[in-house]
Design a protein around this nucleic acid. Structure first.
Lengths: 224, 224
DNA sequence: TGTATTGGTGTCTTATTGACACCAACCAAT
DNA sequence: ATTGGTTGGTGTCAATAAGACACCAATACA
């Protein structure tokens, strides 16, 4: 049964997060065609029959934003009957985490970064998808070291703290934060490499992904 | 674009968990038709164009197992190209938690409960879906009070502890477990109602869902 | 030279976690 | 009636983790 029924189309949509100027941002595309022409929307498009859904998400991300080789994970599937005014479309949403500093150009001229706190009016049910993505990011950042996906390879402890404060919408004690994050021994201090500015230079660190993988295998749990 | 492409079919599949005889179980259906005729599979079927995916999951669960009014939540969407040998089928998987004691009959005669630890060979990629569901359940049971969905309305603290031990694959200290679970004040002691047997009778409790909803609203987090 | 800005550090108090052992109440068998 | 088997129910203490808290250092720029 089922093979002769009219079929829904399947799309992917990507909630692309970036962190810049101490603020969490989302990458949106301005639609050039109806419906919702001129409105901002999540990058995405139709899934082809010869590619997996994961592949479709990666492909659309590359085509629409120029981004590749970024953290990309399935988020949730949205299947309300009327979510697309044209016809039945089921969308498998993904979320991506981008090292914004290393991908400064968004590629497409119709793409722009918006603060997640005050996005423009979005097409389709993309506001709901964004909200779901944000909620997932907030939940996951506390027990998986995915925050590093939003920072450059080399970062300072202050940058990391500000990232967490921004994502979790809270403030953290500097000494306690440094104590906890360093006690996990997942950060490698890049001796001699400093970050300068109109103030005392800061020590740069990088996240040791291999060490984390090994520890995780052995039962270690990252937490906050 | 996209509207004239050949389209994948969309199905739902449900990982239905139950708890019985101190063991976590999953409800499977023996397939009566090809492909995988005679093999065991997760209950599921095609999504109709006039229903949401959530509705499809609930409907298929009712049609194939007779279960209704149970905890049902989206799990993950599986979209490998060759996961169905007939043609391209994308499946949105759900997981359900059933109070097995209160739904003793499975309805359909081709349905049966299997221990999640040693399921039979499954059709399609259902082994992977089951694995994903189990992993989700293990993760979620620790920070959301969903374990109660697997127990009768009235239960003893020992039953609850055995449920957690079974799901989390660990052993828990009786006194510490009771101390923690009671300290949350989410269990209502049903005075005078006892559970008898060939031993000292046990106090029955029920989970106070309204109180949990209120506390959660105020920022409370259930944990273990 | 001094002022503004961010970087970096340790202690102490309090709260949480985790280890641990015994008696109680019932049923069943003798 | 007594005994043995089985599960129910309870509190303390030690170790660990969490959280509050303030000052000096290094640089750029005026």
């Amino acid at each position: 049964m089922g093979f002769n029924y009219p079929r829904a189309a399947i799309t992917v949509d990507c909630v692309v997060f970036g962190f810049d100027e101490g603020e969490l941002k989302v990458l949106l595309i301005q639609r050039g065609i109806a419906p919702f022409k001129g409105k901002w929307a999540l990058p995405g498009g139709f899934v082809r029959t010869d590619e997996t859904i994961d592949q479709a998400a990666g492909r659309e991300l590359l085509e629409e934003t120029g981004l590749t080789n970024v953290f990309l994970e399935q988020l949730y599937t949205f299947g309300a009957v009327d979510r697309d005014p044209r016809e039945r479309v089921v969308s498998v949403a993904y979320y991506a985490l981008v090292k914004l500093c290393e991908h400064p150009a968004t590629g497409a001229s119709d793409a722009a970064w918006f603060p997640v706190a005050k996005p423009p009016t979005l097409a389709f049910d993309h506001a709901e998808i964004l909200k779901t993505g944000l909620s997932r990011l907030r939940g996951k950042v506390r027990y998986e070291p995915i925050g590093f996906e939003l920072l450059p390879e080399k970062f300072t402890l202050s940058q990391l703290q500000h990232l967490y404060e921004s994502v979790l919408q809270t403030t953290l004690d500097k000494r306690n934060f440094r104590k906890r994050i360093l006690s996990m021994e997942l950060l490698v201090s890049l001796e001699g490499e400093l970050c300068s500015g109109a103030h005392r230079p800061a020590q740069l660190f990088r996240f040791d992904a291999e060490k984390y993988a090994a520890l995780k295998e052995a039962g270690f749990n990252f937490e906050l």
